[in-house]
Amino acid sequence: SQVHIGNTTFTFDNPEKAQKYAEKYAKKKGLTVQKNGDVWTVE
């Protein structure tokens, strides 16, 4: 599972961890999370 934030990609061994990280980061920065398969993009 991966989380894309700008030009940075974070890889997680667990989809739940990836989703939590993406949502927490997005909330903190006032951004949105797009999910595509097991990839979350914060923008």
Rank of each mutant, 00 (worst) to 15 (best):
G30N: 05
S1I: 14
D13E: 11
T41E: 10
P15I: 05
A18I: 00
N7A: 09
E23M: 06
S1A: 14
K17G: 07
N14A: 09
V33E: 01
F12H: 03
N7T: 10
K17Q: 13
V42G: 00
Y25A: 07
A26R: 00
Y25R: 02
L31I: 05
T8M: 15
F10L: 14
T11C: 10
T8S: 12
T32R: 09
K35C: 10
V42C: 04
Q19F: 07
N14Y: 06
E23V: 06
L31H: 06
Y21Q: 03
W40T: 03
I5L: 05
N14F: 03
F12P: 01
K29P: 05
N14I: 08
E43W: 10
T11V: 14
V3R: 00
L31T: 04
V33H: 01
W40E: 01
E16G: 08
A18K: 00
G6K: 09
H4G: 02
A26Q: 02
I5F: 06
Q2V: 14
E16P: 00
T11I: 15
N14L: 07
N7S: 12
Q2G: 05
N14M: 08
Q2N: 08
N14H: 07
P15M: 05
D38S: 09
G37T: 02
K24Q: 14
E43S: 13
T8Y: 15
G37L: 05
E43I: 15
S1R: 07
E23S: 04
T8W: 15
A18E: 00
V33G: 01
G37M: 01
E43V: 15
Y25K: 05
Q2A: 11
L31A: 05
Q34M: 13
T8V: 14
Q19W: 08
K28Q: 10
K24L: 12
E23N: 05
F12M: 03
F10T: 04
W40V: 01
K27A: 11
E16R: 08
K28L: 11
P15Q: 08
D38Q: 06
Y21F: 15
D13R: 06
N36V: 14
N36C: 12
Q19M: 10
G30A: 03
I5N: 02
S1Q: 07
L31N: 03
V3H: 01
N36W: 10
G6V: 05
V33R: 03
K29L: 13
K35I: 06
Q2L: 12
F12C: 06
G37D: 06
Q34N: 13
V33C: 00
K27F: 06
Y21M: 09
E16S: 09
N7D: 11
T11L: 14
G30K: 04
G37Q: 05
F10M: 10
E43K: 13
K24I: 11
F10Q: 05
K24Y: 14
T32M: 08
V3I: 04
H4Q: 13
D38T: 11
F12R: 01
N7R: 10
P15F: 05
K27N: 10
W40R: 01
V39R: 04
T41W: 11
N7P: 05
A22T: 02
T41G: 02
Y21G: 01
A22E: 00
T9N: 06
D38G: 08
T32A: 07
F10W: 09
K27E: 12
V3A: 02
N36Q: 13
G6I: 05
T8E: 11
D13H: 07
S1K: 07
I5A: 03
T9L: 14
I5P: 00
T8A: 12
K24T: 14
Q19E: 09
E23H: 06
L31R: 00
K28D: 13
G37S: 02
T9V: 15
Q2Y: 15
T11W: 15
N7L: 07
E16K: 13
D13F: 10
K29M: 13
A26L: 04
E16A: 12
W40N: 02
Y21T: 04
W40K: 00
K20D: 13
T9F: 15
H4P: 03
K35R: 14
Y25Q: 06
G30R: 02
T9M: 12
G37E: 06
K20M: 12
K28Y: 10
A26H: 01
Q19N: 05
Q19L: 10
P15R: 04
V39H: 13
K17W: 08
G37V: 04
T8R: 15
E43N: 11
T8K: 15
Y21S: 00
L31V: 07
T9R: 09
E16T: 09
V33L: 09
K28T: 07
Y21P: 01
Y21C: 08
K29V: 07
K27L: 07
A26Y: 03
K17V: 12
V39D: 11
D13Q: 11
G30I: 02
N7Q: 08
V42Y: 04
V42A: 01
W40H: 03
F12A: 02
K29I: 06
N36M: 11
K29D: 05
P15N: 07
T41Q: 07
E16V: 11
G37Y: 04
D13K: 10
F12V: 00
T32G: 04
V3G: 03
D13Y: 08
N36R: 12
A18V: 00
T8L: 15
V39L: 08
K17F: 09
Q34S: 14
N7Y: 13
D13P: 12
P15T: 05
E23C: 15
K20N: 12
K20E: 14
Q19A: 12
A26I: 02
K17Y: 10
K17H: 13
K35T: 04
Q34W: 10
T32N: 11
K20L: 13
V3Q: 01
A26E: 01
E23F: 07
K24W: 15
K35Y: 11
K27H: 10
A18M: 02
D38M: 08
A18S: 00
Q2E: 12
P15S: 07
E43R: 08
A18Q: 00
Y25L: 13
Q34V: 14
K28F: 08
K35N: 06
V33Y: 06
K24H: 12
V39K: 08
V33D: 01
E43G: 14
N7W: 11
L31D: 01
G37H: 03
V33S: 02
F10D: 00
K28A: 09
K29T: 10
G30S: 02
T8N: 11
K28V: 08
N14P: 00
N36G: 02
D13L: 11
K28R: 07
W40I: 04
T32P: 03
A18R: 00
A26C: 03
E16C: 12
K27D: 07
K35A: 05
A22I: 09
D13I: 09
Q2H: 12
G37K: 05
L31W: 12
V3P: 02
F12T: 04
N7M: 10
S1G: 13
N14W: 06
T9K: 12
F12I: 03
V3C: 03
P15D: 09
Y21L: 08
K20Q: 13
N36K: 10
T41R: 08
T8C: 15
Y25G: 00
Q2P: 04
A22M: 04
V33I: 09
V42H: 01
E23Q: 08
T8I: 15
W40M: 01
T11D: 08
G30D: 05
N36H: 11
K29E: 08
N36Y: 10
G30C: 03
K24R: 13
A18Y: 01
E43L: 14
P15L: 07
E16W: 11
Q19V: 04
T11P: 04
F12K: 02
H4K: 15
V33A: 10
K35L: 14
T41V: 13
A22P: 01
S1M: 10
T11S: 10
A22Q: 00
K28I: 10
F12D: 00
E23D: 06
K35G: 05
K20W: 13
V33T: 03
A26M: 02
N7H: 12
Q34P: 02
N7I: 06
Q34A: 09
Y25D: 04
D13S: 12
K29A: 09
D38I: 05
N7G: 12
G30W: 01
F10N: 02
F12Q: 03
Y25N: 04
T32W: 02
Q34I: 14
P15K: 04
A22N: 00
G37I: 01
D13M: 08
T32Y: 04
T41I: 14
K27Q: 10
T32F: 05
P15C: 10
G6E: 08
K27M: 07
G6C: 15
W40C: 09
K24A: 15
T41D: 06
V39Y: 07
E16N: 08
A22Y: 04
G6S: 07
E23A: 07
A18L: 03
V33M: 08
G6R: 07
H4F: 09
F12E: 01
V3D: 00
Q2T: 11
S1P: 14
Y25V: 10
T9W: 15
K27V: 04
N14D: 14
G37P: 01
T11M: 14
A26W: 02
F10R: 06
Q34R: 13
K17A: 15
N36E: 09
Q34E: 07
K24M: 12
T9E: 04
I5W: 03
